[in-house]
Amino acid sequence: MSERDAERSVSQTVRAQLALRDMILSGRLRPGERISELQAVDITGVSRTPVRLALVRLEDEGLLQAIPSGGFMVKAFTERDILDSIELRGTLEGLAARFAAERGVSARSLEPLKECLADLDQLVRQDPISVEAFSAYVTMNARFHALLNELSASAPLIREIDRVSALPFASPSAFVMAQSALPEAHQILLIGQDHHRVVVDAIENREGARAEAVMREHSRLAARNLRLAIRNRTHLELMPALALLKSSAE
């Protein structure tokens, strides 16, 4: 295979992966539904080899489960599965913050994180916060976490954080949009932003244990948002992916 053909194959694999992931997380592919390679080819318009790789990647992410007779099935998740994924992300991000603090970060390297913190401050000061502002917060929050993780200067750790963040509902902003319609929305954002502020201060002052503890506590806000989203079933249209969640009765 030529280099150009290899690049095209990777591009098609990513395209198929993103298209199928979107269908799963939007609820268009339901838990327990079977997906064959041929069906995925029809859905994505991508040839069989890249589709096969995309399906395997989605299995690695935990969204699909291989069926012994062939093909894959959309997985469902318990609340405990999701809480464990959130806790795992918090543990890894806590380690990233500790590495950044203990290894030392220059003022210049810390500046993009501080700028992102200031942008988030402007958003969370709004009261009430519009759905559009929540949407902007999702993007800025993802950037804040990415910048913080980069300050760890640990490629293996960043790779593992990326892997766990790809698990269903485990990313830092997984429940932000579902949270936006809740009465507690502004209070939770203020708490989260205070965590952001404290971890930046801890890194700047080289307080590793403090930085780690704050980021682990910060991840637990996502667990709180999960419980609120489940309790307030009237706002599920903001997070169709909750269709993947098994009820406690199952």
Rank of each mutant, 00 (worst) to 15 (best):
A6S: 09
S26E: 05
G70K: 03
R57H: 10
K246G: 03
E93C: 07
L244C: 07
A100Q: 04
Y137T: 00
H196V: 03
R233V: 15
L147P: 00
L148R: 06
Q17N: 07
R30C: 10
D22Y: 08
L55Q: 06
D121C: 10
E59W: 11
K75D: 00
S154P: 04
L95V: 08
S9R: 12
S85K: 00
S26P: 00
P240K: 08
E204I: 03
R21G: 02
S154L: 03
L244V: 06
Q187R: 13
R30K: 14
A142D: 13
A153W: 01
A107C: 09
L110S: 04
V105T: 06
A202L: 02
R108Q: 14
Q12S: 14
L88D: 06
E93Q: 12
E150A: 08
R98S: 04
R21V: 04
S36R: 10
A178D: 11
F72T: 05
L25T: 11
P156T: 00
M177V: 12
L238M: 06
G208E: 08
L182R: 09
G104E: 01
L92F: 05
V138C: 02
R197H: 12
R231S: 12
L64M: 03
S130E: 03
I203R: 02
R34F: 11
G71V: 06
I129N: 02
L25S: 02
P128L: 07
L25E: 08
V10I: 14
G70V: 04
L244W: 09
M23V: 06
P240Y: 07
L157D: 00
I230Q: 06
L226Y: 06
V105L: 02
Q193T: 11
L110V: 09
L29K: 02
G62A: 09
S11R: 14
P50Q: 10
V214L: 05
A6E: 12
V214A: 06
H218V: 03
Q65A: 14
A16S: 01
V164C: 00
L29T: 04
D81P: 01
N205P: 00
A241T: 01
L20Y: 10
S9E: 12
V138K: 06
L120V: 08
N149H: 02
R98Y: 09
Q179T: 09
A146G: 10
V131Q: 08
R48S: 08
R52N: 04
E3T: 08
A211R: 01
S85D: 13
I158T: 10
P31M: 10
